[in-house]
Every structure is written in C-alpha cells, then in structure tokens.
Computed example of a mutant assay.
Amino acid sequence: MPIKPDKFLWASLLGGCRIHKNVELAEKAAEALFEIEPENPATYVTMANIYATAGKWAEVAKIRMIMDDRGVVKKPGKSWIEVKRKTHVFLKSKQIHEFLGELSRRMKEEGFVPDTNSVLHDVEEEQKEQNLSYHSEKLAIAYGVISTAAGTPIKVFKNLRTCVDCHTAIKFISKIVDRKIVVRDSARFHCFENGSCSCRDYW
C-alpha cells in the first residue's frame, strides 16, 4: 500500500477475518491493532470470538490472560429502547424472558439455528443457547414488541457490536412479529425487515 494502514483499516480486516474464519490473517491484524491501541477491548473480544469459532479454547484463555495483564476490561453489553418517551435499559424480566422463549420456539420452527460460536466459554451447547437468549438487544426488542401496538417500528440502541447470533435472530424476529426493527450498535445502523437486514449480513 502507498500509505501506512491505520486502525480503521486493520479493524475492517479483522472483522472480515471473523466472517470468513481466517485465523492466521486475523492474528496479524490483531497484532497490528494491539500495537496501535492496546487499550481497546474490541480487538481482544473479536480475536477471542475468532478463536472460539475455531475451537481454540486455549487461545481464548490466553486472550483473557493478556486482557487481565494489561488491565483491559470488556464493557458489559447493554441495550436501551424508548417507549412512550421513557428510556428502558436492559436488565432482566420474567415477562420478557417468557416472551423470548415463545419467540425462540417460533424462530426454530422457521429454521433458525443458534450460532453458539458467539459464546466464549467451553460449555455444553444447551448452556450456550441459554446464554445467547439473554443478550441485551433481544431483551430490548422483546420489551418493545410486548409494549407497543402491532406494526409499530422498534428502535434499539446497543453500546457494543451486536453478535452474529443476535443479528440472525433479529432477522427471524422481524419476520415473525411483522415489525421493522432498527438496531444501532457500536458499528452501524441495522434495519431489519421481513427477515432481512440492510447490511446484507456484512458488518
């Protein structure tokens, strides 16, 4: 390249490696990002996701140790939604969980398969699915559906990047509940409608 790549280019490359499961190239991109901004937790989390997808649990543990040694802390994921001029931050709720359980059943009937690669712990598949079901954007969307009139568009905001499983799940949810769902995560706006997303599954 005629210019030196910056953090945005390396981050884009790392994101592409996550999608295409290229571990070797991801390690090179992560190494460059660790040098440029060693305090950014997003690089460590993305790299841990890539290792988890590849089943490299020892490498996932190594990433966690590096984060601890460097004092890098992953921000807890949270989502929020405004309903009737009130902002709700998510937080668990029995009613929302019950509704999500019903949605999960209907999603599986439609062909949805949870992407448990998003879970960074070497646990049983059933436990991984349960962990994914409580992601904050799913809770916010479920609350939006049960708290607003049929057909009302739902807008959710998240402080972190949405995971692959949630992205796929929200596509199914938009079709099942027949709602337009807009999610603004830390990377971009996603507009879900009738089972598809405006990002065309590349973000």
Rank of each mutant, 00 (worst) to 15 (best):
V113K: 14
T148H: 00
V123D: 07
N131G: 00
V177W: 01
K175S: 04
T162G: 12
I173G: 05
K158G: 12
S196W: 04
T152D: 11
T152V: 14
A169Q: 11
S147E: 07
V183M: 04
I181R: 01
I154K: 08
G144Q: 09
N117W: 01
D185W: 07
E109T: 07
A187P: 00
G195N: 06
C191T: 11
T152P: 02
K138Q: 12
I176F: 05
E109G: 06
N194V: 01
F189P: 00
N194G: 00
E125V: 15
V123P: 01
K138F: 08
P153M: 07
Y143T: 10
D122S: 13
F157N: 11
K171L: 00
D122Y: 09
V113A: 11
T162H: 04
T168R: 14
L160G: 02
C199D: 03
E193S: 05
S147Q: 12
T152M: 14
E124H: 08
R161Q: 12
A150T: 04
I173C: 06
D165L: 12
D178V: 04
K155L: 09
V177N: 04
G111Y: 04
G195R: 02
E129W: 03
H167V: 01
P114R: 07
R200T: 10
V164I: 11
F172W: 05
I170G: 05
N194R: 07
C199T: 05
P114K: 05
I173N: 01
V182K: 12
K158R: 11
S198V: 05
V164D: 14
K138L: 15
A187H: 06
V164G: 14
F112D: 06
E110W: 10
I141V: 13
S196A: 14
P153K: 13
S136K: 03
V123Q: 13
S196G: 02
F157P: 00
R161E: 09
T152N: 08
N117G: 15
A150R: 05
S198R: 01
F112Y: 15
R184F: 14
K128Q: 06
T152H: 10
S196P: 00
S118H: 12
F192N: 01
I176G: 09
K128I: 01
D122N: 15
E109H: 05
C163I: 08
V156N: 08
R184S: 08
S133V: 09
E125C: 00
R200L: 15
H135R: 09
K155S: 10
V183L: 09
V145W: 00
S198L: 08
C191R: 05
H190K: 03
E110M: 12
K180P: 03
T162I: 15
V119K: 07
N131Q: 14
S133E: 08
I176P: 09
T152L: 10
C166P: 02
S186I: 00
N117A: 15
K155Q: 13
V164C: 04
P114V: 04
V182D: 05
F189E: 13
E126D: 13
E110Q: 13
E109L: 13
N131K: 15
D122V: 05
E109N: 11
K180F: 01
